[in-house]
Design a protein around this nucleic acid. Structure first.
Length: 648
RNA sequence: GCCGCUUUAGCUCAGCCGGUAGAGCACAUCAUUCGUAAUGAUGGGGUCGUCAGUUCGAGUCUGACAAGCGGCACCA
C-alpha cells in the first residue's frame, strides 16, 4: 500500500503507507532532513515522525518558516521546562503551558510545603532544561484512551491533568508526548522530533507569577514560570535588546527624567502633575476643546460629589459600589465621588424640557472620575484611580443615531491621525450573556454600529459577548511606535440610563419620546493618553506638545541680556520658553536640556548678542542654524502650532 | 484582590556572620566666562517605608501593615 504525497514544487512522491514526513525529507536529501522541524500536512502542522496514512499535500517546515518554527520551539521549551521542574522538584504537578508572543510559560502546582517558585529557582531550572536539551531526548507521540489517561493521571497524583482530561469528550482519543521514555505530558502537539533540536542558548527563564487555574480566581492559584524562547542565540539577544529599549521609553521613567509628574504613597493611583506635565495636559485639553467645538459639541461641567440617591437611580450604587469612593458628612448624608460622568450628563439632559429641535445634543465634559481600582491593577499613568476623561454624551433621535456614530468614528480616527497614530484597530463588542433590553433592540443597535463602520469602509474585529450590559460598543485600539496596543477611544450605545432617569424629548408629533444616548471618549483618559504619547515618542514629543518648547542658553554672561530678549520674543509668540543663564559650559547645558527632551535650544553667545541672531539647535542634531531673531520667532511660531491650527 | 519580589540621601545603588550608615549623580558655596551631550574644589544632607517583636544591641532577624515592581484576576 502506498500513499501519494504532493510537494510544494508540484512534484509527487509515492511512499509506503505509514511513512512519515521525516522519511520524505530523508528521501529528498540529507540537508533537508536536518533542517526539517515539522511538516504541514494538508495545511495542518504535523510531527515530522507521525505516520501518514493517506494521500496528502505535504510541506516541510524549516526555520525559514519563522512563525511556524517559533511556535514549535516555544511549545517545546514549555515541555522541557515542565520536565525540568518535575525532575528538580518531585511532587510538583504539571498543568499546562503554551507558547506566547515572545516565548512560553508553564503553570505548576508545587507541593504546598515547597510553596510557589521564586526567581531564585530559575537558574537551576534553566540548567536542568539545558541538560534535557543536551540529552537529545526523542519526542514521541502516542495516542491514549481518555479514561485510561485519566486513570494514569490520578494514579500519579496529577489532579489538574486528570481534571483537564475529564473535560474532554468521552471516548475521545488523546495524544500524549513522551520525552525519551521517562516523562510525558498530554498535548495536542505537534513537537520537534527531539529535544536536541532546541538551541540551548536561545532561551531564558524570565519571571515567575501566580496564575489562577483556568483563569478563575475561585480556583487554586498556580505558580507560573515564564520564559522567552527563540530559534537561535542571535534572536534571543535581539529580543533582550528590544526589551532594554522599551524600558528606556517607559513613561514612568520619562516622567521622572522630564520632571512631568510623580506619585506618592498617600495617594495611590493619583497623579501629582508638575508644571511641565500640566503644560502638556493643558495643551491636550485645548486641542480637544477646539476639535469638539468645531464638531458642534457643547461643553459642560458636572459635580464631582453627588448624593448616593443619584447613584441609586443610575444603578451604580448597586452594581459598582465596590469601585466607588464615598464620603459621609457630619449630617449623615452619604455622597459618592463620580466614577463616571454619565449620570451627571443625563441629569443635565433631564433638566428642562427638550425638543426634537435640540437634537442631536452633543455634550462634552472633561470630567475627572474616581474609581477604586484593585491595587494590583495600578500602573503608572496607564491605570490610575483618578483620571480625566474627554467624555461626551450624544443625545439624539433613533433616526439620527447611525449618522452620529459615523461622525464620532470619523472624529476619533482624524484626531488619532493628528497625533501620528495611523494604525488603529476597531473592535465591535456585542451583546453579553447578562444584559438588559430585548433581542430586537440589540439587533437594531448592533446593526447601527455595523452600518456606521461599513458606511465609512472600515474594517473591524468582532468581540462577541464583550459588550456592556446596557448596549453594544466600539473600541478603538491604537498601536504605538513599538507595536504595543492601547485601547483609548470608545463609543457605546446606552439603553439603560435614559430609562432609569426617564429622560425624554418632545417630538414633531408633540408626544414624548425617549432619546438615544451615546457615550464616547476619544483619548479615553488624558492621563493614560499622555503615558501612551510619552512611550510612543520615547519622550521626544512633537513641538506643539513639548512641555518646554525652547530653551535659550547662554555661552557667556555678556549674552544674558540678549537671551532675555529672545525668550521674551518667543514667549510673546506663544511659545513655552525658558532661559538658562547659569554660569556653566554650553556642553553641560546642551546635555541637560537634551536629556530633558527639549526640542529646540537657542544658543546665544557674544557673537549672537552683537548681531541680533540666535543659533538654533534641534534636539539630537549635530549642527545648528544661525538665524535672525525675527526669522527664528516666525519659524518656531509656525512649527509650534497644533495640527488643527495648521501646525505640522 | 491573589502569587512572587522590592523599599537605605532628590535619583541610581553599595552596606559580609546583628555592634547604631557609604558612593556616584543631584543640591549649596567658591573659583572658572568657556561655542554645542558632564569644569574643578569645598560643603550640607539619612527617625535605613511604617508599626510591633526577638536581642545587651536591629538598616541587617521575625511578624503585621503600606507603597512600588512583574504577572494573574479586574478594566459594568
Amino acid at each position: 500500500m502506498h500513499v501519494r504525497i504532493s510537494l510544494p514544487d508540484g512534484s509527487m512522491r509515492e511512499m509506503p503507507r505509514g511513512a512519515t514526513a521525516g522519511d520524505v525529507a530523508r528521501a529528498i536529501g540529507p540537508g533537508l532532513a536536518k533542517a526539517a522541524l515539522a511538516a504541514r500536512v494538508d495545511g495542518d502542522l504535523f510531527d515530522l515522525e507521525r505516520p501518514i496514512e493517506r494521500d496528502v499535500a505535504l510541506e516541510l517546515v524549516t526555520a525559514k518558516d519563522e512563525a511556524a518554527a517559533l511556535e514549535l520551539v516555544r511549545h517545546d521549551y514549555a515541555h522541557v521546562l515542565a520536565e525540568a521542574v518535575q525532575r528538580l522538584f518531585p511532587g510538583t504537578q504539571i498543568t499546562f503551558g503554551p507558547a506566547t508572543d515572545d516565548g512560553f510559560y508553564y503553570d505548576f502546582a508545587p507541593p504546598p510545603e515547597r510553596g510557589p517558585f521564586t526567581e531564585a529557582d530559575l537558574p537551576a531550572i534553566e540548567e536542568e532544561m539545558r541538560a534535557i536539551i543536551a540529552a537529545d531526548k526523542p519526542l514521541r507521540r502516542e495516542v491514549w484512551d481518555r479514561d485510561a489517561l485519566i486513570a494514569k493521571w490520578r494514579a500519579e497524583g496529577e489532579t489538574f491533568k486528570a481534571e483537564w482530561a475529564a473535560t474532554l469528550p468521552e471516548g475521545e482519543e488523546i495524544s500524549v508526548y513522551w520525552s525519551g521514555d521517562d516523562w510525558m505530558d498530554m498535548c495536542r502537539g505537534p513537537h520537534l522530533p527531539s529535544t536536541g533540536r532546541l538551541d540551548p542558548r536561545a532561551f531564558r527563564l524570565t519571571r515567575v507569577s501566580g496564575a489562577y487555574w483556568r483563569g478563575d480566581p475561585n480556583n487554586p492559584q498556580l505558580s507560573r514560570i515564564y520564559g522567552t524562547g527563540w530559534l537561535n542565540a542571535k534572536q534571543l539577544e535581539a529580543h533582550l535588546h528590544r526589551l532594554e529599549e522599551a524600558a528606556k521609553r517607559d513613561h514612568r521613567k520619562l516622567g521622572r527624567e522630564m520632571d512631568l509628574f510623580h506619585f506618592q504613597e498617600e495617594a495611590p493611583g493619583a497623579v501629582f502633575w508638575h508644571p511641565r506635565g500640566w503644560a502638556l495636559f493643558l495643551e491636550l485639553i485645548g486641542f480637544m476643546r477646539r476639535r469638539q467645538r468645531a464638531a458642534r459639541y457643547v461643553e459642560v461641567n458636572t459635580p464631582d460629589v453627588m448624593d448616593r440617591g443619584l447613584w441609586e437611580v443610575s444603578g451604580h450604587w448597586h452594581n459598582y459600589r465596590e469601585h466607588m469612593f464615598s464620603t459621609e458628612t457630619e449630617d449623615g448624608r452619604v455622597y459618592a465621588l463620580k466614577p463616571m460622568n454619565c449620570p451627571g450628563g443625563v441629569s443635565m439632559f433631564a433638566h428642562g424640557l427638550k425638543s426634537y429641535r435640540d437634537l442631536p445634543l452633543r455634550m462634552a465634559e472633561f470630567g475627572k472620575v474616581h474609581r477604586y481600582e484593585p491595587s494590583g491593577a495600578l500602573h503608572g499613568l496607564m491605570r490610575v484611580r483618578h483620571f480625566t476623561q474627554d467624555d461626551a454624551h450624544v443625545f439624539c433621535t433613533p433616526g439620527q443615531m447611525a449618522g452620529e456614530c459615523r461622525e464620532v468614528i470619523g472624529l476619533v480616527l482624524d484626531i488619532y491621525r493628528q497625533f501620528g497614530f495611523d494604525d488603529v484597530a476597531i473592535k465591535l463588542s456585542t451583546r453579553p450573556d447578562s444584559r438588559i433590553g430585548d433581542d430586537a433592540t440589540w439587533d437594531r443597535l448592533e446593526g447601527a454600529l455595523v452600518e456606521a463602520l461599513e458606511g465609512l469602509g472600515l474594517a473591524y474585529a468582532l468581540n462577541p459577548g464583550e459588550g456592556a450590559f446596557y448596549g453594544p460598543k466600539l473600541e478603538f485600539v491604537l498601536r504605538d511606535a513599538i507595536g504595543r496596543d492601547w485601547q483609548c477611544g470608545t463609543l457605546q450605545v446606552d439603553m439603560n440610563l435614559p430609562e432609569r432617569f426617564d429622560i425624554g424629548y418632545v417630538g414633531e408629533d408633540g408626544a414624548r419620546h425617549r432619546p438615544v444616548m451615546l457615550h464616547r471618549a476619544i483619548l479615553g483618559s488624558f492621563e493614560r493618553f499622555i503615558g501612551i504619547l510619552l512611550e510612543h515618542h520615547a519622550g521626544r514629543l512633537p513641538l506643539w506638545l513639548a512641555p518646554v518648547q525652547a530653551v535659550v542658553a547662554t555661552i557667556v554672561s555678556d549674552a544674558d541680556g540678549w537671551a532675555g530678549e529672545v525668550a521674551a520674543r518667543l514667549a510673546a509668540a506663544g511659545l513655552r520658553v525658558e532661559t538658562d543663564l547659569r554660569n556653566e559650559k554650553i556642553n553641560l547645558k546642551v546635555r541637560e536640556h537634551s536629556l530633558m527632551k527639549v526640542p529646540v535650544m537657542l544658543v546665544v553667545g557674544r557673537r549672537e548678542a552683537e548681531e541680533g541672531t540666535v543659533a538654533v539647535r534641534r534636539l539630537g542634531a549635530e549642527r545648528q542654524e544661525l538665524l535672525s531673531i525675527d526669522a527664528a520667532v516666525a519659524m518656531l511660531r509656525a512649527e509650534a502650532l497644533p495640527p488643527d491650527l495648521g501646525g505640522a
